[in-house]
Amino acid sequence: MDLFNGLVGEQMKIMEKLLYLQGELERCEEIEMQLLTLQKETELKEIQVDIQKMKEELKEIHHIFEMQTEKVIKVYQEKEIKLTSG
């Protein structure tokens, strides 16, 4: 009977370790998922910064295009005035 009780006691210790390790594994997997999410959030922030830079560059290019268009129109109108006047 002492042998039986000793074996059962060892099994209980092993079961406690097993449950502890399972709990730790689940906790670590949750942390892993949180870290992956944070990494994705970091990537998202990087992409958002890139998007903002592109929007600013696009706005600047649009402004330059408008100025060039106005200049082209002005030069064309001046040329037309000279042709019709002369």
Rank of each mutant, 00 (worst) to 15 (best):
K53G: 05
M67K: 15
E43R: 15
Y76Q: 14
I31Y: 01
L21T: 02
L58Y: 03
K71E: 11
D50G: 13
E32R: 15
R27C: 05
Q22L: 01
Q11F: 09
E70K: 11
I31F: 01
Q48C: 06
E78D: 07
Q52V: 07
G86K: 14
E57H: 01
K17E: 07
E60S: 12
L18P: 04
L38H: 01
I61T: 13
K40G: 07
L7A: 04
E80A: 12
H62F: 09
E56G: 02
K79V: 10
L21F: 04
H63S: 14
G9F: 10
K59S: 03
L38W: 00
K82R: 09
T69W: 11
E30V: 02
M1L: 12
Q39T: 01
M33P: 03
Y20M: 10
I31W: 03
G9A: 14
L35W: 00
L21C: 02
Q77G: 05
T42S: 06
Q52L: 08
Q77L: 08
M12C: 04
E80Q: 10
E60V: 12
E78I: 04
I81Q: 06
K59Y: 11
E66M: 11
E24G: 00
Q22P: 00
H62Y: 09
L36M: 08
Q11A: 09
E80L: 13
Q39L: 02
E80K: 14
T37K: 15
E80W: 06
E24I: 00
T84M: 13
Q68S: 08
M67R: 14
I47N: 04
E46D: 10
K79R: 14
Q48Y: 05
I14R: 11
V72E: 09
M33I: 11
K53V: 06
T84Q: 13
L38Y: 00
C28S: 15
L83W: 09
F4N: 12
E66R: 15
T37V: 13
M15S: 15
E56A: 07
M1K: 14
K79I: 10
E46L: 07
L21Q: 04
N5K: 15
L44M: 08
D2G: 06
L83A: 08
E60Y: 04
Q11G: 04
T69Y: 11
G86W: 10
